[in-house]
Each structure stands twice: as structure tokens, then as C-alpha cells.
Design a protein around this nucleic acid. Structure first.
Length: 884
RNA sequence: GCGGACGUGGCGAAACUGGUAGACGCAAGAGACUUAAAAUCUCUCGGGCCUUGCCCAUACGGGUUCGAUCCCCGUCGUCCGCACCA
């Protein structure tokens, strides 16, 4: 730097220095480096590499129109991993695509008279441009959109293969039908028994629908969870509960002849508590149970009751508050262990047809629901299990059932046995008589994939009056969606289309019609990660050897996304991988995601003005005497600062990534998303936080630019001083933190290093640098460490230092282990567990030396008050504790 | 109701799962530079006291241990998931 007096003259002659001393301008620099990476083809991944593979994937977005901060956080994390692994020498696959089918496109079509396809692709274009400004190291050559026939063609082929393999089937099912919108609704779309959009009372209808037989793999899906050691325990627990395995017994009860409807001889029930068989006081069957229907034929009152249950609401709220209700069918069953003992059969509203056999035996003393029911209908309550230390003579059940394990009472040959032994005894006896059978049951239901929708993957089936339902021949795939559709009428546009569904039967050639349903969009997202391994293959969904196997990409090494997909998407994908393996589309993959990380949400304060919520952009925060207040920018009206919520349009607490990237740059946005909060937790978006991140970016830039002339021609070399120690320690820690996805800790380590380097860099800039080779090495380390997080900044600094090539292409530096440990360490010295002083010793000092030195400390002597210590505990390189 | 997770400064959080509680950042305060502001730099920053030092602090109450944010028992609170699954 020239002396101040001549600076103006110097600068006018050297405009490049004017550039250099200005603030870092990400708006200019970021697009430049993005172009440089593109030009070098750095992120285009080859399937033919000898390097070990690493597959990093973030959950692909729905093309809603604009990216949001949640995307920024998700993709910033994935990009850190991708860039880091690339620097570590891995062949990294880091692709991006679009979950492009779905209802919003149809709503937009209906409301704005646009074609769903045009709407979707326009959104993709916008969002892709937004993602590009983030500077993500994505292989865009592999981009896919699930709404593209080149994608869903393969999905249709796999559907046919699943069908042939018995993993897909068409059958009748009870569904929520909205009579106004003419469509099936998902359970969560039914609110208080009414369609969420139409407000019409939803009907339960039997419709013939397509199912994927996920239940066929229930056990494997459950067992597979145990192998997923890099999944959050929470997600595994949720999936286990969802699959809901239970072990029990099916028991066939003979109907009492005199009371049995014609042709009916027995009732099969499922129970997990056969031990409580002697506590039975009634049987309960679902309203849809065949026996109920049969009994109702000659009993109009029963028929009316059943009809009433069928029209009762199915919403969660209604089920929760619904009172236990039943109706005695008049049919009686005979107890399997006592021919003289008969029990009544009720139709009950709390028994579900699609679990177990749709029938149970009620043991009021051992089940709260049964007890509620028994009290209401005045049925016997016989305690059959009591606590281990209970008294058989006095133990009774009042309003609370005893559901724990314990000791059997009032149970004839079971008396005195514990619960497990009683279970075994009953099972053994009933199995011997072929009356009972051990049975494993799952809560998991088959996956209903039919949707009466337009904007989805057509189900490639043809219905022929003569031949039945036949597959579309593979050569005719894809079955493409027609583009000339109308959304004027409610219901499925595919069904309304004048010509689309009329085809000839592939088998007999006669007149037939297409299946007009499309697939649930969860199907699309259940295999996209496999498609990314070779999206160029037009012949099949996957390519042998590339998809999986010794040189294949699967499984995904690190999958990152939101916790909201903990069950459905992840479970469906786990099923799909197994089904693809079963049908030869994969070789050996059962678990698609070896590592899963669920990131937290981006949350923000809410602001409420006189006319409802207002956006953060419309207000100004004022800080008066430590009290934060907010006012409208426009006219200064006070605004109430509300609770912190997930960013959402309805709360108007969204911050647009475009605005942030536009004013601070992508690096700042990325760095802030990675700082402070642990990635699995929610992160609070604050203006101050963004400014802090931006200050960091500017600070690194300024420190390096000012020191650059002194360091430009220096060869990096490790020294022995504080600078090298700090650099090597930080390098070690940051690498470990990134491996563990502890981005917030890596950021803290980087801050520490920058703080350490600030003074030496300032000295170098002023011309009194010491050990410049060590400083140069430390700076290069720093740039490598920030490169995964703030990649543009790293490139800009590297260029300023006169570095060759791109940081993005540089290998991760190697730390010197000797430099990461200190020769002298400071040990805390405690007396009775309370810290009384510090002791600086050689790192390899032996315990006796340390002990002597600790005892010699003045503070220790004072605390001991002249007494001899009873014991001295020396934990090498950790602590000394003197026990007085 | 069942299952799970979590409670640490004014705030977001660290603490190598038993070894200096509060790293790093935000906010706040004081100072330097400046005509001034911004930016930047330096310092202070859990509470208390008899302030070279000591006491109390990791939701609360116990326990184990030389030593507990961490392990065990109990209480309170917050969040999430499931919800008649027999």
C-alpha cells in the first residue's frame, strides 16, 4: 500500500486497486463464477469413473412457481456435502429434478384458463433460474420432470411389471367420495365429514381402484429399519408405528345354531390377548362385516343401525369423540373352552372392518374400549389379569381396565400363569383343535394409487367387456395425457375427454376404454432417485450396472429433506426399491437411502397490522430502550409483533430468496442458513442474522484483499507458530463437522480461524508479516473450508491471491496431525470438584509430575488449608482433581 | 390416552457422551477513528458478594461419583407423531 498522501494519485493510475478496495460485490462476482464452473463442466458427473461414488440428494421440489427459504436451507446443506465430498476425491452424483404432477396445476388451469403443462413448465423455468443463482453444484444434465412422458413412460412400464408380479392389483375399496367435485378425497381432505373444497357431505363409496401391495412387504419394511443406522431414530420409530406389527391369534367361534342366520356357522375374530379369553363377555363386529349384513336381512332395526354407522363421519375429530355404540344382533356364539357358555354378538362402531378379521371378542376387564362398551350395555366385567402382587379375592375392575401384564385369575386352567404363559397355553390348545391359529397382523394398508385426476401419470390399463382389464402393450407406452382438456366440468377431465378413453382392446380388438385414473403423485417420487442414475436411457427406467451393484450409484449415500415425509414418501420409496428389485429393474437394492437427514424448518416472526398480517418487507423494526416495536414503512402505523411461525403465505411471514440473493448474494444466504442453529432444528430467520453472515463474507474478502499483495507470490508451507496450529486444527475440525452434517459447528470453527488470522493478515497487509508461507497456507486452508458453504467468495478470494484454477476443483487439504495438538496444555485443577486454578504442563508430562505441580499451586495449598490431600486424580490431558 | 424428543445467558447455541459450563454468532453497552454518520477496530457482557478472591447457576427435587448439562429415580413444562388397529 502506498502512503496515504499519494493514494489518490496511485489509485487513479491503477484502477484495479480501486476495484479491490471496494466492498465485495456478489451481484457481479457470483454469476461470473457460476459461468466459470459451468464452462469447466465441474459438476457434470460421469458414470464411468474409477473414483469411489457418493450420491447426495435433496428431496426434489414441487414446481409451485418460486423457491422458498426452506429450499435454500435444504439445498445449501446438500451442496456443502456435495462440494466437500468432491474435494475429498469422490465421484459425486448431485442431481436435481421436479416433482411435477399434482393438483395445484389443475387448480391453476381451472382458475386461470392455462394448460397445466404450460403452467408447470413455466414454473420449472422460473425456479430453475432461481436455483441457478444459488450457485449449487448440481449436474443439470440429469434434470428430470416427472410430468414428462420420457419419465412416466418408464413408470407405466414398471406398473405393468408390478401388476404381472402380483404387486399391483385392482379391487373394490371403500373411499371418500365427494359428490359435488366427483372425485375421491384423501382422508385428510375430509373435514368434519365434508369435502374440504366443495363443502359437500362426503359419502363412503365402494369403488374399484388400483392398489400397490405394500402389505406384502410389511415384514421386510419393518426388518429393514434395523439396518438403517444413519437414519434418525425418530423417523424409524414413526415408520415402525405406522407398519404396526402385532402378534396374536385368530379364533373361530361356533355360532349357536338357534340364533345363527341361515348359512352362517362361525365367527372368526383376531386377538392379541388370547390369555384373556375367560374374561370375554361379548363379541363385536364391524358394520360392514358379512355376518352383520346377514343378520340385518331379517332385522330392520339392525339394518337401520348399520346404515347410520355407515353415514357417520370419518374425520379424526369425530372418531375421537364418538361414543361407543352397539346393537345386539341376536346371534350368539359358543365359547371355545365351554360349550355351555354363549355370548352375544354386537355390531359396534369401534370395530374396523379392514383390520384383522373385522371382529373381536370383548374382554371388558382387560381393554378400556371393551370396558366402556360393557358399562354402557350392562355386560359382565370379570377380571382375569391382576398385578403380580395383587390379591385374587379382592381385585376388581371399576372404570379403568387393567391392560398390563400380570397373573391370571378367574380363568380355570390358566389361573396362576403369567400373561405370556397363558397366551402360549391358549394358543397351544386352540391350535391343537384347529380352532385357533397364530397370526401376525399389520396396521399398514395397501397403497391406493388411483386418483380421478388429470395431471398425473395415466394408469396403463384398458377395460374390455370381453377380456376384462388388460395391460397396455409395452410397445404402446407411454400412454400420454391429452393436451386438449377442459376443466369446466367438475370431475376428471380425462373421463370427459371426447375421444381419449376410446380404444380397441389389445387382446380381442373390440371396442374398449382406457382406465381414466391417474397415479397418486407419491408414485412419481418413489423412484426418481433411481432415474437420476441414468436419465439418458430411453429404453428402460434403469440401466443395469449403473443403477446399483458394485459400480452402481444406489443407494443414495445422503438424502436430505423435511421431516414431513417421514412416513409416506420414505416408506413408499422403500417399498418401490424392493418392488423394482423383485421385477428386475434393480439388482440388489432394498434400502434406497443409506443416510437420511431431516432438516428443520425456516421460521420467522409474524406481524399483524390493523388489516391483518403484513409481510416483513412492509415493516420496520425499531429498538427503543431494549423494547422491539414494529411500524408500517408506508405510514408509520404501529404493527404488533406476533409469534414465530413456519414461513407461510397465509401468515405473510415469508422472505423471498430472490430478494435476499439480490441484495446480499447467494453466499450470504447460504452461510446464514448453515450458521447458528443445528440443521435438524428450526432456524429463525432474522434480518440481523443475515447481516451477520454478510459481515462475515465482507470481512473475509477485505482481510484477504488487503493482504493479497503480500501473499501473492508466497509458496504455502506449514510453520510451527499459532497461525499454522490454528489452521490445521480448524481444518481437522471442519472436516469432521461436515462429515457429521454439523454445519453450525463448522461455521463456528471457521469464525474462530478468521478471528485468529485477522491480526496476522493485517500485519501482512501493512508490510510487517511474519512467516508468510505459513500464513499463505492458512489462507488456502480457509478458502477450502469456506468453499463448500460460500463457493463464490472462495473463488473470488483465490483469484485475488493469484491462485490458479478453481477452488471448486481443488482437493481438500490434508492437515498435519502434529500441528493439531499442542506441546503445552493447560489443565484445570480442581479441589473437591471445584475449579481452583490452572496448570500449564508439557502435553506428555507423566502423572506424578502433574500431581506434584498441581499440589504446589498456591490456590490448591490455600484450599487444602495445610492438610494433606486424601487422593489426587489425574486424568491425562484432561483435568486434575485434588480430594481434600 | 399411546409413542417419541427436548428443557443451558437477553436470543440462536457449544461442551470431544462423565472432566474448566456458556466456544462461535446475534443483540446490548463503552471507547477509538470521523466535521458527522455508516463501515471498521478495541474492550465489557449468566447472577450475586466482603471483587488479588469467593458463592450461586445447565427446568425443579433427590441419587450414584473424586467430579454430573451428560448416568439413574421422581416432579413440572414445551414440542412432534399416532389416534378406537383388538
Amino acid at each position: 500500500m502506498p502512503p496515504l498522501a499519494s493514494r489518490a494519485v496511485f489509485l487513479s493510475a491503477h484502477p484495479e486497486f480501486v476495484m479491490a478496495t471496494e466492498r465485495y460485490n456478489p451481484r457481479a462476482a457470483e454469476p461470473r463464477w457460476q459461468k466459470a464452473w459451468d464452462g469447466a463442466g465441474l459438476f457434470t458427473t460421469s458414470n464411468e469413473s474409477e473414483a469411489p461414488k457418493h450420491y447426495v440428494l435433496e428431496m426434489f421440489p414441487y414446481p409451485s412457481g418460486r423457491i422458498h427459504m426452506g429450499h435454500v436451507r435444504n439445498y445449501a446443506m446438500g451442496d456443502v456435502v456435495a462440494r466437500y465430498k468432491r474435494a475429498k476425491g469422490f465421484n459425486v452424483l448431485h442431481p436435481m429434478g421436479w416433482d411435477a404432477f399434482g393438483l395445484p396445476a389443475e387448480n391453476a388451469a381451472r382458475d386461470n384458463k392455462v394448460n397445466p403443462r404450460d403452467w408447470t413448465y413455466k414454473n420449472i423455468e422460473t425456479m430453475k433460474a432461481q436455483l441457478k443463482t444459488m450457485g449449487l453444484s448440481l449436474d443439470w444434465s440429469r434434470e428430470i420432470a416427472t410430468c414428462d412422458p420420457s419419465y412416466y413412460k418408464h413408470q407405466q412400464k414398471m406398473f405393468l411389471d408390478f401388476w404381472q408380479a402380483g404387486l399391483a392389483e385392482r379391487r373394490s375399496a371403500k373411499v371418500n367420495w365427494d359428490p359435488v367435485d366427483h372425485t375421491v378425497l384423501a382422508n385428510e381432505q375430509v373435514i368434519d365429514g365434508r369435502g374440504w373444497r366443495s363443502g359437500a357431505v362426503v359419502e363412503q363409496r365402494d369403488l374399484t381402484q388400483w392398489f400397490l401391495k405394500i402389505t406384502a412387504m410389511a415384514q421386510e419394511l419393518l426388518d429393514g429399519l434395523d439396518t438403517l443406522d444413519r437414519w434418525p431414530e425418530k423417523v424409524k420409530v414413526m415408520q415402525r408405528n405406522w407398519i404396526g406389527r402385532s402378534e396374536g391369534l385368530t379364533i373361530r367361534w361356533a355360532l349357536e345354531e338357534a340364533t345363527a342366520p341361515e348359512g352362517e356357522t362361525e365367527l372368526e375374530i383376531y386377538t392379541t390377548r388370547p390369555d384373556t379369553l375367560f374374561g370375554a363377555s361379548f363379541m363385536a363386529i364391524a358394520a360392514d362385516h358379512p355376518l352383520a349384513k346377514k343378520a340385518a336381512e331379517k332385522n330392520p332395526e339392525l339394518a337401520a343401525f348399520i346404515d347410520e354407522l355407515r353415514h357417520a363421519g370419518t374425520s379424526a375429530a369425530e372418531l375421537e369423540t364418538a361414543e361407543k355404540r352397539g346393537f345386539d344382533t341376536g346371534v350368539r356364539v359358543v365359547h371355545p373352552f365351554d360349550e355351555s357358555w354363549t355370548l352375544p354378538v354386537y355390531v359396534a362402531n369401534f370395530v374396523l372392518m379392514d383390520y384383522g378379521t373385522g371382529a373381536i371378542f370383548g374382554c371388558p376387564s382387560g381393554d378400556q374400549r371393551d370396558l366402556d362398551f360393557a358399562r354402557k350395555y350392562d355386560l359382565p366385567v370379570v377380571p382375569v389379569v391382576m398385578p403380580k402382587d395383587g390379591d385374587a379375592a379382592s381385585f376388581t375392575v371399576g372404570t379403568e381396565a387393567f391392560t398390563d401384564d400380570g397373573v391370571m385369575i378367574n380363568s380355570r386352567f390358566l389361573d396362576g400363569l403369567d400373561t405370556d404363559a397363558a397366551f402360549e397355553e391358549v394358543a397351544k390348545r386352540l391350535e391343537a383343535r384347529s380352532v385357533g391359529e397364530r397370526k401376525v397382523n399389520f396396521r399398514l394398508r395397501d397403497w391406493l394409487i388411483s386418483r380421478q385426476r388429470y395431471w398425473g401419470c395415466p394408469i396403463p390399463a384398458i377395460h374390455c367387456e370381453v377380456c376384462g382389464t388388460v395391460p397396455v402393450p409395452a410397445k404402446d407406452l407411454p400412454v400420454e395425457l391429452p393436451s386438449d382438456v377442459s376443466f369446466d366440468k367438475p370431475g376428471n377431465p380425462l373421463d370427459h375427454h371426447p375421444t381419449w378413453k376410446h380404444v380397441s382392446c389389445p387382446q380381442c380388438g373390440g371396442a374398449a376404454r382406457r382406465d381414466t385414473d391417474t397415479m397418486d403423485t407419491f408414485v412419481d417420487s418413489s423412484w426418481y432417485f433411481v432415474r437420476f442414475t441414468d436419465p439418458f436411457n430411453t429404453e428402460g427406467p434403469t440401466t443395469a450396472g449403473v443403477a446399483d451393484g458394485p459400480k452402481g450409484w444406489m443407494p443414495v449415500d445422503q438424502y436430505i429433506g423435511g421431516i414431513e415425509h417421514a412416513i409416506l414418501h420414505l416408506l413408499y420409496s422403500r417399498f418401490f426399491s424392493r418392488a423394482m428389485t423383485a421385477t428386475g429393474h434393480l439388482k440388489e437394492t432394498s434400502e434406497p437411502f443409506a443416510g437420511l437427514f431431516t432438516q428443520g424448518m425456516v421460521v420467522h416472526e409474524t406481524y399483524r397490522g390493523p388489516h391483518g398480517f403484513v409481510t416483513p418487507a412492509e415493516i420496520r423494526i425499531e429498538d427503543r430502550e431494549g423494547k422491539r416495536t414494529a411500524v408500517l414503512l408506508s405510514d408509520g402505523t404501529p404493527v404488533e409483533i406476533g409469534s414465530i411461525e413456519k414461513m407461510s403465505k397465509s401468515k405473510k411471514n415469508v422472505v423471498d430468496p430472490d430478494d435476499i440473493i439480490g441484495s446480499y448474494g447467494a453466499d450470504t444466504a447460504r452461510f446464514f442458513m448453515l450458521s447458528d442453529s443445528p440443521p435438524e432444528r428450526d432456524v429463525l430467520w432474522t434480518e440481523a442474522g443475515v447481516e451477520g453472515a454478510h459481515r462475515f463474507v465482507q470481512r473475509v474478502w477485505r482481510l484477504l484483499v488487503e493482504a493479497a499483495p503480500a501473499l501473492a507470490a508466497v509458496e504455502p508451507r506449514a510453520g510451527t507458530g499459532a497461525v499454522s496450529r490454528a489452521a490445521h486444527k480448524a481444518l481437522k475440525a471442519v472436516g469432521e463437522d461436515i462429515e457429521r452434517l454439523a454445519f453450525n459447528k463448522a461455521v463456528a470453527r471457521i469464525y474462530e480461524l478468521v478471528n485468529t488470522l485477522a491480526a496476522p493478515l493485517a500485519d501482512a497487509a501493512a508490510g510487517n508479516g511474519k512467516d508468510l508461507p505459513a500464513l499463505r497456507e492458512a489462507v488456502e486452508f480457509l478458502l477450502s473450508m469456506v468453499a463448500p458453504m460460500t463457493p463464490h467468495l472462495a473463488e473470488e478470494c483465490w483469484a485475488t491471491l493469484g491462485g490458479e484454477g478453481l477452488v471448486a476443483a481443488k482437493p481438500w487439504p490434508v492437515f498435519e496431525p502434529a500441528l493439531t495438538v499442542d506441546d503445552e496444555i493447560t489443565l484445570p485443577v480442581q479441589v473437591n470438584g471445584k475449579k481452583r486454578g490452572d496448570l500449564t504442563v508439557a502435553r506428555d508430562a507423566d502423572n506424578a509430575t502433574v500431581e506434584a505441580a498441581a499440589l504446589a499451586l498456591e490456590a490448591v495449598q490455600r484450599a487444602l488449608e495445610g492438610k494433606a490431600p486424601r487422593k489426587v486424580i489425574v486424568v491425562p490431558q484432561r483435568i486434575v482433581n485434588v480430594v481434600a
